[in-house]
Computed example of a mutant assay.
Amino acid sequence: MPYSIMVDAGHGGKDPGAVYDGRQEKDDALRLALAVGEILQNNDIDVEYTRTTDVYETPYQKAMEANNAGVDLFISIHRNSFPEDNEAEGVESLVYDLSGLKYQIAQAVNEQLEAVGFVNLGVKARPNLVVLKRTQMPAVLIEAGFINSDSDNELFDANFEAIAQAIAFGILDTLEREGVIRDPGMANSISNGMTNGMAMRNGAGMSGRTQPRQMYRVQVGAFRNRNYAIRLRDELLEQDFPAYLNDSGEFIRVGVGDFDTLGNAVEMERRLKRDGYQTVLITR
């Protein structure tokens, strides 16, 4: 049986969640939950969703849904909020208690999101949250930045794909490291926009036409300050990592390598992690 995860998009329907300047948490949560779920599915995970449209269910209903489905892991996607606008920023993950697989997954997801550019606010225990308390499997609630922080919203919008990958790979990397699954994603590429959703062989589609080759990079940092990015790149180069800067977007990203197989990219990511760097895998 494949490993199964229920991905929950927080709020929905009559419950918009946090709202800021016309932006609703329920919309961001659904968009991100679907993107994370797609990546997990493309890495041999059996994914179910509490919702795929704008509908409302109570947290208790969501927990019972996961229990009845018998999934192995529950991941809930949210955006955070603070009483004062633009006074808080960053990502945090919530778990029932600071132990076990759920805690390790939460830490890994936060680290991956930090590499995208978010402030890492850590993992916190919230034993009274229904989706963490009532679920019968390990459960993690991810607060993907503050919805009433302009800087977090800019980061969320400009790096959406990288954020989805950061969450998915934080989960997959932990499951593999703990021996729960074997070599996640080694035999499958991440979704590359193929309309039929099927794996292609030898870079050719059903019509025989050549498809663009999927490439993978390891991102080690994303900065607004160019000097910080240069400092990290030079530090990596001194250790013989093939580092470079990518300043094509709002953030200056520090990347390592350009790989045509996911396996090679994952191996480079592991080397960087062993040397204490926070990483996220990027596709192009």
Rank of each mutant, 00 (worst) to 15 (best):
E161S: 11
Q214F: 02
R231T: 12
Y3M: 12
V55I: 15
E176F: 01
R213Q: 15
M137G: 04
I147R: 02
G249V: 04
V7P: 00
V180R: 08
N68L: 09
N68R: 15
H78Y: 03
D150V: 09
P184S: 07
M186C: 09
Q112R: 13
Y49P: 14
V280T: 06
R209T: 13
Y228G: 08
L34A: 08
Q104D: 15
L232G: 07
N227I: 08
Q136E: 15
R126H: 02
Y60W: 13
R224K: 14
N86K: 09
M198I: 12
L132G: 01
K133I: 01
L245N: 13
Y96T: 01
K124W: 15
G17M: 05
I230E: 13
V131D: 02
V95K: 02
F241L: 11
V266N: 05
D27C: 06
R213I: 12
E154A: 04
R23S: 08
H78W: 06
E57R: 15
S149L: 06
R226E: 13
G221F: 05
A115E: 01
D85A: 15
I230M: 13
R201L: 11
G170L: 11
N120L: 12
F169K: 01
G70K: 08
E238P: 05
L32R: 05
N159H: 15
D72Y: 00
Q107M: 10
G13C: 07
Y244T: 09
M198H: 07
D15F: 02
